[in-house]
């Protein structure tokens, strides 16, 4: 039996919702970043599912580019954490209020 494509989309929506919950509730900067990676991954799953549904390979191409952008984003984001840690000795986002008005 084949699986309807909407199940993949539902799964991706659930993964994205879990990622949103994590990004909003966690306090450690790293944990928030992990949740964001989870959301990114759910978006990739949606793109691949639509590529399958429409029989159009461009969707897979976009996932390829999204993966490359994710790599760049992870490198810069983690570098920012290291820089912030050098200044504040913590990456707990409750204590990083440099830019809070």
């Amino acid at each position: 039996m084949t699986v309807p494509v909407s199940w993949y989309l539902l799964l991706a929506a659930a993964l994205f919702a879990i990622g949103v919950f994590g990004a909003l509730t966690r306090r450690s900067g790293i944990a928030i970043f992990l949740s964001i990676e989870l959301m990114l991954n759910a978006a990739n799953l949606v793109l691949a599912a639509y590529a399958r549904l429409l029989g159009e390979r461009s969707g897979q191409m976009v996932v390829f580019f999204a993966l490359a952008v994710a790599a760049a984003e992870a490198a810069v984001g983690l570098a920012l954490f290291i820089a912030v840690f050098r200044l504040r000795k913590t990456i707990d986002i409750d204590r990083i209020n440099l830019m809070r008005w």
Partner: peptide, 30 residues
């Protein structure tokens, strides 16, 4: 904060699930 985030995530999932189901239902891929 946990409650707000939890309800927000659930509402998001509910809205997306409804949208997906109404748009595609059990549609089989080629």
């Amino acid at each position: 904060q946990t409650w707000v985030a939890g309800v927000g995530a659930l509402v998001f999932f509910g809205a997306m699930a409804r949208l997906i189901w109404e748009s595609y239902g059990e549609a089989e891929a080629p």
